[in-house]
Amino acid sequence: MPFVPRPLAPAALPAPAGLIAQLRRQGAAAARPGLGMGGAIGGCLPGGVLPVGALHEVGPEDGAEVQQGAVVAGFAARLLARLPGGLPWLWVAGREDLYAPGLVALGLDPGRLVLACAPDEAAVLAAMEAGLRGGAFAAVVAEAGRLSRIAARRLQLACLKHGRMGLVLHRWPYGRAAHAVEEAPSAVTRWRIGGVPSGGPFAPPRWRLALVHARGGVPGEWIVEAGERDAAYPVRVVAELADPAAAAQRRGVG
């Protein structure tokens, strides 16, 4: 009897559980809409994009920015401006110092922005959840210092259910030191951004952008600068900062 090669049943294939989980994750991420971040940053994100129906955290580096929250707000505004669909955005904060004319230069139409002022951080996060649950906003931004695990989980579920982006900007009141940002693994990505000197008086501003945590992705850190108003990606990578551990991990994944 000649030997006939018989295909193996798929179930019989020995596959590492971790690989399956990762492929599933990537498949799920690809199926969900995302926001393109460019090659270098996208390489650290699952599926190469920033998922839209998810909760993201953006925190400042140390310094005055912890209270001013201008750089994190600028980063958030650049993300919002590139979300698809004509839905309005909701921006909930405890202070009313967001200056709408400043958003125009970032490509965000202030006419589509609904601002909300809440008395305390708990109310800010509760309002954010209410805004996400309706599904009427393309994205909801909240300025809050703390984000507890439970709050983050609730917000992430609301984002996931309605397919809307949630952004929590970490910002503390004046005169109060920043608390350590609590590990809230429910957020899909966590970013840290701080200013660095730009190329010159008329050069676009530059920041140090760090992807501290990305579910299904790897951390990374870059020097980025503001692109054109209608550029495809929120920021343009100027230099990738060497991080041997992260680079090795990324090689393992990619």
């Binding site: 309005p88 709408a100 609904v114 601002l115 909300a116 509760a126 599904g135 009427a136």
Partner: peptide
């Protein structure tokens, strides 16, 4: 979408108060 937005805004207004939501003009 306008009805969705109105409904969401109503819950937010009920939560935060009438003057707490606005659009910059």
């Amino acid at each position: 979408t306008a009805a969705d937005l109105a409904a969401t805004l109503d819950t937010l207004i009920a939560r935060l108060g009438e003057g707490a939501l606005w659009r910059p003009a």
